[in-house]
């Protein structure tokens, strides 16, 4: 009888001990898939504020991988007249700030791969701007997106969200975006500000797009 009690006690101890074990390590093979284009899985999304990475490390090998992961590019540009330029780091290559009391902010961000594609990013941006176009309007918007060919021969697709904001007050947040698709990366150029400021700086943004070139 005592042996049975002892065995039961030991079993209980083993079960109780099992509750506090280290995490179980699993190994599996996964078919590689492109990330989904939902907002939570989007490269830009899910963060409370804008991305401004500061990934610097003293290990050169690690730094090389970090640099590769954010798809740094040899892209060159010329800042439009009147815009101030602030160098970025990581995936954000540069930040421009327009002049005047109601300035625009313009960023150039480089990401590896397609980064969700044009439509997924366009849908996400409309949500950010709190625009709710009908599927038909969105389809027409994407179909009629223009392209600007730069001096360096690079074609940049332009999404001018002001076209979906006709009739809204001048202070409404707005955006014009440019997407440059390169063989292994996508470069996003985003000019954000009030509807009035974006309209006033549209020609400067087009100038920036035309200045893009690869050395």
């Amino acid at each position: 009888m005592n042996r049975k009690i002892l065995a039961a006690g030991l079993t209980l101890l083993m079960v109780a001990g099992g509750c506090d074990q280290s995490p179980q390590i699993r190994k599996y093979t996964e078919i590689h898939r492109e990330p989904e284009a939902s907002s939570l899985r989007d490269p830009h999304a899910g963060l409370s504020v804008a991305v401004a990475p500061s990934m610097r490390t003293q290990d050169p090998a690690v730094q090389a991988m970090l640099d590769k992961s954010v798809a740094e590019t040899a892209l060159k540009w010329t800042a439009p007249e009147g815009w101030s330029e602030e160098p970025g780091s990581g995936m954000r290559l540069v930040t421009f700030t327009g002049a005047g009391p109601d300035p625009v902010t313009c960023t150039i961000i480089s990401l590896g791969g397609t980064s969700g594609g044009v439509e997924a990013n366009a849908v996400r941006w409309t949500r950010q701007l709190q625009i709710n176009p009908t599927p038909g309007d969105m389809h027409a918007f994407l179909e009629s997106a223009g392209t600007i060919t730069g001096d360096g021969g690079l074609d940049v697709q332009v999404l001018d969200f002001r076209r979906l904001q006709e009739g809204l007050p001048a202070g409404t947040p707005s955006m014009t975006a440019g997407l440059l698709t390169l063989p292994d990366k996508t470069v996003f150029l985003k000019m954000t500000g009030s509807l009035e400021a974006v309209t006033a700086n549209q020609e400067n943004f087009n100038t920036l797009l035309r200045s893009l070139r690869m050395p």
Binding site: G46, L47, S48, V49, A50, V51, A52, P53, S54, M55, R56, T57, Q58, V62, L66, S69, V70, G90, M91, R92
Partner: peptide
């Protein structure tokens, strides 16, 4: 909750999204 601004960047803290 993740933050990319608000605190000075920690020089050796690695994160691909810029969260610090």
């Amino acid at each position: 909750q993740a933050y990319t601004r608000g605190k000075p960047p920690q020089p050796n803290l690695l994160n691909v999204s810029g969260i610090n």
